[in-house]
Amino acid sequence: MKLKLKKLSILILFITISTTAVRAQESFVTEVNYPYLDKLIATAKKNYPEIKVRQAQVNAAKATLTQSKVMWLDAFTGSYIYSPRNSLNLANPTFFNGYQVSISVNLGTLLSKPFATRVAHENVNIAQYQQQQYNLSVEASVKRLYFAYLEAQADLRNRARAVTDGEIAVKQLKYTFQKGETTFHDYNEALTSLYNQSSFKVQSELAMLTSKANLEEILGVKLEEVK
């Protein structure tokens, strides 16, 4: 009778574990919320400091490009001389009176400006490409961290159910042990299993909190603030 009862208990435990694993797997898939994931990605791109650094680099490159387009005027140097009409300069006589304007051109500087502008334009492209690349990297990181967080939640639910099932099993075995229908060995094994499941649950809680903290690090805000 005891052997049959033990086999029946093992069968029930196996079915319970299998059902729990299936429920955990299904819940992980069904709980992936892609619209919410898009909000997480948008939040990370808005708040993560490195994203702001990349945008600042793009702005700086654009400013340098604008500056290079204006600096072609550096090749030209203007000067003027003023000679009063009613004055006579015997040491350095001039044939013109009033204002005299002269403009000189530095050919080396003038010819180098198109190349400087081209370099500045390419620097803008590089900054924009780097920004796009980092945006893709942030998007992928948010997805990985979000999926890891959902996985940790599913695992924690699985561990919590295992603890609940273990508590029920211990309670039943305690009752049958007190009636002399179960050996102390079986009862002690159930207690040990419950202790192990409780330890696994604590580890799952830590993993869930860690995955949440990792996700919030890249978001820049608490997960609860993303609606």
Score class of each variant (00 low, 15 high):
residue 1 M to L: 14
residue 2 K to M: 15
residue 3 L to F: 14
residue 4 K to D: 15
residue 11 L to Q: 07
residue 11 L to A: 12
residue 11 L to N: 02
residue 12 I to R: 14
residue 14 F to H: 07
residue 16 T to G: 08
residue 17 I to T: 04
residue 17 I to L: 09
residue 22 V to P: 01
residue 24 A to S: 11
residue 30 T to A: 11
residue 34 Y to P: 00
residue 35 P to E: 03
residue 36 Y to A: 10
residue 36 Y to E: 10
residue 38 D to H: 07
residue 39 K to W: 08
residue 42 A to H: 05
residue 42 A to N: 11
residue 43 T to S: 07
residue 53 V to H: 00
residue 57 Q to L: 12
residue 58 V to W: 01
residue 62 K to Q: 13
residue 62 K to I: 14
residue 65 L to P: 00
residue 73 L to K: 05
residue 77 T to F: 02
residue 78 G to W: 13
residue 80 Y to V: 06
residue 82 Y to P: 01
residue 95 F to A: 13
residue 98 G to V: 11
residue 99 Y to P: 00
residue 101 V to P: 00
residue 105 V to S: 00
residue 106 N to D: 09
residue 107 L to D: 02
residue 107 L to E: 03
residue 108 G to L: 08
residue 108 G to E: 08
residue 111 L to W: 08
residue 111 L to P: 00
residue 113 K to C: 03
residue 113 K to Q: 08
residue 116 A to L: 14
residue 125 N to L: 13
residue 125 N to M: 07
residue 128 Q to C: 09
residue 129 Y to V: 11
residue 131 Q to L: 11
residue 136 L to M: 10
residue 136 L to T: 11
residue 138 V to M: 04
residue 140 A to V: 04
residue 141 S to R: 12
residue 143 K to E: 12
residue 147 F to Y: 15
residue 150 L to N: 03
residue 155 D to T: 13
residue 156 L to W: 06
residue 159 R to V: 11
residue 160 A to Q: 13
residue 161 R to I: 11
residue 163 V to N: 01
residue 164 T to A: 14
residue 164 T to P: 00
residue 167 E to D: 10
residue 167 E to L: 05
residue 169 A to V: 05
residue 171 K to I: 06
residue 172 Q to Y: 11
residue 174 K to E: 15
residue 179 K to F: 10
residue 182 T to D: 07
residue 184 F to H: 09
residue 184 F to N: 11
residue 185 H to I: 14
residue 186 D to L: 10
residue 186 D to H: 03
residue 187 Y to I: 00
residue 190 A to D: 01
residue 190 A to G: 04
residue 192 T to M: 06
residue 194 L to W: 02
residue 195 Y to S: 15
residue 202 V to Y: 11
residue 204 S to I: 04
residue 208 M to E: 15
residue 210 T to F: 02
residue 212 K to R: 13
residue 212 K to E: 06
residue 212 K to I: 08
residue 214 N to T: 03
residue 215 L to G: 04
residue 216 E to R: 01
residue 218 I to W: 01
residue 220 G to S: 10
residue 220 G to V: 10
residue 221 V to K: 04
residue 222 K to Y: 05
residue 227 K to C: 02
